[in-house]
Nucleic acid binder design. Structure first.
Length: 313
DNA sequence: GGGCAGGCATCGA
DNA sequence: TCGATGCCTGCC
């Protein structure tokens, strides 16, 4: 028997079923956009099994020391976990406290961001583990998403704790203490190149407590960026990604070459002031990023198209 | 085989 | 303070 619950303080209504929790799909929860907009690297679309043939999409991800499968079924999203796990882990991870419809309205005063927000309806910013965000965005430099994902998977397979999920072996993201105990040769199988040394250094700093990742979430964005850029191989762009995706700092505004290009094109060469979006700046950035990546035909390389076909087949 | 990719650090002007 | 360059690797 399904039981409908709602948390008035928390604005989300959900239904508790047999071994799953489900929410209404609404307009601001698109797994495709959330998992493919470049903020995370460990969520994959599953091939549909017989039991899921009425589902439109099934996704499995490893995050926060857990493995979760979720399914898009009609107008609902099913989270295949207990209610307790949903409330304690996934509610925060998927940023359910935030009203994305209201946020899209707020940033739509500007015509360019209005188009981006309409196009990217369904995106949410995940509140990821800060250590995982730090590692994955260190690996992201001068790299494409496919390759980042494969390096991250090798990293987890080599050093993460194994779990069995739906008959398959998966690996949790390795803790900084585990990585800090390694040396450069141990990381060679990752084929991460010069980024491997940055990972080792970050692990040593995090494991020793010199880099207090959890505490950075409580301070200001400027303090977090300052602490992160003190690490080897972490510049302003990567630090802002970690602040936005790992520390919940929604005013952090990572500027990469794509965002740079978009801002130059749409704000007439004037220096763009991200603070006009206040605490929404980082999320506005994600809508812009997603929008321009899909506008730009150069991005649609044959490899990208093939990947898309394979994954949606 | 050279260029390039969602960056960073270093060096020389 | 700014621009050029090397860094690993993999793909076109």
């Amino acid at each position: 028997m399904n039981q409908i619950k709602s948390d008035k303080q928390k604005r989300l209504e959900y239904t508790v079923g047999d071994r799953f929790v489900s929410i209404r799909r609404g307009e601001d929860f698109s797994p495709e956009l959330i998992f493919r907009c470049g903020q995370c690297f460990r969520w994959e679309r599953e091939p549909l099994r017989e039991a899921d043939e009425d589902a439109e999409g099934v996704w499995t991800g490893v995050a926060m020391g857990r493995v979760l499968t979720l399914a898009e079924r009609g107008d609902r999203i099913e989270f295949r976990c207990s209610e307790m796990e949903f409330r304690e882990i996934w509610y925060g991870y998927f940023d359910f406290d935030r009203d994305y419809a209201a946020l899209r309205r707020r940033i739509s005063a500007d015509p360019f961001t209005a188009r981006a927000a309409a196009f990217g309806k369904g995106i949410r910013i995940l509140r990821q583990d800060p250590w995982e965000a730090l590692c994955t965005f260190i690996l992201s430099q001068c790299n494409n998403i496919a390759r980042i994902k494969s390096i991250v998977e090798r990293f987890c397979e080599c050093f993460g704790e194994p779990r069995v999920h739906m008959g398959k072996r998966v690996y949790l993201f390795p803790a900084p203490e585990r990585i800090a105990a390694l040396d450069a040769r141990d990381l060679e199988p990752l084929r991460a190149g010069y980024r491997a040394a940055y990972l080792l250094h970050a692990a040593e700093e995090a494991a020793s407590g010199r880099l207090p990742l959890a505490a950075l979430a409580c301070g200001t964005t400027a303090e977090a960026v300052r602490a992160l850029t003190a690490l080897k191989g972490v510049g302003v762009k990567v630090a802002n990604c970690v602040a936005l995706f790992g520390l919940g700092k929604t005013d952090a505004f990572p500027v990469d070459v794509w965002i740079r290009r978009a801002l130059d094109a749409h704000y007439g060469g004037k220096e763009f002031d991200s603070t006009v979006f206040g605490g929404d700046a980082g999320i506005a950035q994600q809508y812009i990023f997603h929008y321009i990546r899909h506008l730009d035909s150069r991005h649609l390389s044959s490899r990208h198209l093939n990947d898309t076909k394979k994954e949606t087949a």
